[in-house]
Amino acid sequence: MTNALFWIVSIIILVACWRVVTTRNLLHSVLAAFIVLISTAIIYFMLNAEFLGIAQILIYAGAVTILLLFVVMLTTTGPRFETGFENKVSPLMYLTSLLLFALLVFIISNINWPFTATIIKMKNVTEVLAGRIFLEYLLPFEVASVLLLAALVGAVVLARKE
């Protein structure tokens, strides 16, 4: 049951990812990205990581996608939201991507992973996560806020009219 669901969701993710980069209509691209993010959240739920799943839906599928839609609608000129970019992919790029894909499949399937889904499911992930973030990873958590501030300041600097 879970296995079948995993495969279905994975195929949806892959197809949606493919649409994100191939469609010429930016709105379609954003909607495909929305599907990718929601489907990833389903995989998080299947791994018992409910906090991560909810955060993924709220922040990525919710906030980030809406933001992207605004960006597309406010900045794209022309009636159909189509990009003017040529998206030519050379055979060499396909070959490199395929080789990388084959290599990764080989690597991942050859690893005897010590943490399986069943082991993860036995833990109360949200409680563990909270403890980890506010105890062990307190300093990275705080520095991440400065990182976001730097990104915010940077965005303002670059968008400002001179």
Binding site: V143, V146, L147, A150, A151, V153, G154, V157, L158
Partner: peptide, 8 residues
């Protein structure tokens, strides 16, 4: 943190 500041 280093990279984002440097990009800008």
């Amino acid at each position: 943190l280093t990279s984002i500041a440097c990009y800008v």
